[in-house]
């Protein structure tokens, strides 16, 4: 069904139409939440909360990018969830290895087409990037997730986080510079193309 028609129906309270939109956008919203939160369970909670808020507030949607509108709800949900976690910190219930260390990301979520070595490398790189993202201040992290990871343009990102375009530009620049600095520490994990480029820059 055509998206505007689904939105229209959802605005009239039709839950089925809204759920169709949920199925379309749930991966994007979950990934955004995951990169902002850095934890799958919290990201899932924030995503669910975002869709719930979106349904309740869908009558206030007045056109424009629906994706940006949804992104606003998910970033707000992430901020709320982070505030909640700050008040009541929890210990993750991740399975542990024989050494007592927490296991890596559940394998069932990984790309099945990858070899075990590639999986390990990808996991390591992903963890390195996530670590660097987590090091960023929340506002910077949100902007970099929206633009560089979700591929939104500045205008959409500005609409999603409700800040002026100039702020997006500035935050994104600062975030990229900090990320670049942080990722230097994980040089050996970076893909060959980046390594070569980096080496040429170092010399």
């Amino acid at each position: 069904m055509y998206e505007p028609a689904l939105i229209n129906e959802a605005q009239r309270g039709d839950l089925d139409s809204f759920n169709t939109l949920v199925l379309t956008y749930q991966d994007i919203l979950f990934n955004t939440a995951l990169r902002i939160m850095g934890d799958e369970d919290s990201a899932a909670d924030a995503t669910q909360e975002a869709f719930l808020s979106a349904f309740r507030a869908i009558k206030s949607y007045r056109g424009g990018s629906f994706k940006a509108w949804l992104m606003r709800t998910v970033t707000n949900a992430c901020y709320d969830e982070l505030r909640r976690l700050k008040r009541r910190p929890t210990t993750p219930l991740e399975p542990e290895t024989d050494d007592g260390e927490e296991m890596e990301t559940p394998r069932w979520l990984a790309d099945p087409s990858m070899s075990p070595e590639e999986e390990t490398e990808a996991d390591d790189l992903e963890h390195a990037i996530q670590h660097c993202l987590d090091e960023l201040p929340l506002e910077f992290r949100t902007v970099v997730v929206l633009t560089d990871i979700q591929g939104m343009d500045y205008k959409e990102a500005a609409s999603a986080v409700r800040v002026p375009l100039g702020t997006i530009k500035s935050r994104l620049t600062r975030a990229r510079l900090r990320l670049r600095e942080c990722l230097q520490g994980f040089w050996e994990l970076l893909p060959a193309a980046f390594r070569l480029e980096g080496e040429s820059l170092r010399t």
């Binding site: 759920n19 991966d27 990934n31 309740r56 790309d111 620049t173």
Partner: peptide
């Protein structure tokens, strides 16, 4: 410029995860 491009390129390497479950809403939830 190369540094910035690199940082952006690395971020784009991040795999897109599938949602662990469906987030569809039930009448009770709303």
């Amino acid at each position: 410029l190369k540094d910035l491009r690199q940082a952006r390129g690395i971020l784009r390497q991040l795999p897109q995860r599938r949602a662990p479950r469906n987030f569809t809403l039930t009448p009770k939830m709303v």
